[in-house]
């Protein structure tokens, strides 16, 4: 059988023993449970916040409060345990929970139950990003767009941490100068070689290494966030833009 991705695990199989974050989030061990929630929130707080801002028309402060409240409630009520892998992607489930949550908050005009210090995220940064975030008529597409962006950002941060820890700052510098450059001013490989005073083949070596790791980190992170091999394969194709 031919494969054109490593989606589904390095040997084409979803790791059967891996306990995803969705499972760990319901763990009886408080430390394990909290760690899993932290990682889930890191992946999803921004799509939730932007969805509330762009789709639900919340203002900045209201969206902050609701984001906090949404995750606080999900943690308290253990909402994730209602998720059934195979019925829909976790992302879709979460968005449906969010729609439901928003409807409840709005129609009942309830006093918001604040999440307190649950989230320590940079809402101001997210707010600044909104100006560069294209809107979308389709709520599912909007949430997916922000989910995709958020996962890439987390993957990118992990790549930076890993390369710095490994003392590979040169690899990171070339990668950032090329792949994170303004799309209209992306330098050629020859220009990068001149700028960093290395041969052009070294530029492509550095880029190949960084891109391979980014892909692996991204897929590793996604694997934690999905409930089944099929969901992982489907979501990976969306994340990498290879969905047919």
């Amino acid at each position: 059988m031919f494969r054109d991705t490593d989606i589904g695990g390095s040997d084409g199989q979803f790791p059967p023993t891996q306990r995803t974050l969705l499972v760990l989030a319901g763990s009886d061990d408080p430390a394990q449970r909290r760690a899993a929630w932290d990682r889930l929130i890191a992946a999803y707080w921004k799509p939730v916040y932007k969805y509330l801002r762009l789709r639900c028309g919340c203002d900045n402060e209201q969206a902050k409060d609701l984001t906090q409240a949404f995750f606080a409630r999900a943690l308290e009520k253990d909402d994730l345990q209602r998720y059934e892998a195979g019925r829909a992607a976790f992302r879709t489930f979460l968005r449906a929970c969010l729609d439901n949550f928003w409807r409840t908050q709005r129609t009942a005009a309830q006093r918001l139950k604040r999440g307190g210090g649950l989230l320590r995220q940079d809402f101001e940064q997210a707010e600044r990003e909104l100006t560069a975030t294209p809107g979308h008529d389709d709520p599912e597409a909007l949430f997916e767009q922000e989910w995709r962006r958020s996962l890439w950002e987390v993957g990118l941060q992990r790549l930076r941490d890993e390369l710095r820890d490994a003392g590979a700052e040169a690899v990171l510098a070339v990668f950032e100068a090329c792949d994170l450059a303004d799309p209209n001013q992306r330098p050629t490989y020859a220009e990068l070689a001149a700028r960093f005073e290395i041969p052009e083949t070294q530029v492509t070596n550095h880029l190949a290494r960084a891109r391979r790791r980014l892909r692996a980190l991204l897929l590793g992170h996604l694997r934690e966030l999905t409930g089944s091999p099929e969901e992982f394969a489907d979501e990976a194709a969306r994340l990498l833009g290879t969905a047919r």
């Binding site: 991705t5 940064q125 600044r128 560069a132 987390v154 792949d179 391979r212 892909r215 833009g241 290879t242």
Partner: peptide, 21 residues
């Protein structure tokens, strides 16, 4: 955390989106 524009995202997908032998 760095904000990724849609164009940057597309580029990253393009350069990492395959895993060919």
């Amino acid at each position: 955390m760095t904000f990724l524009s849609d164009e940057q995202l597309r580029h990253l997908q393009q350069v990492t989106g395959h895993d060919l032998p």
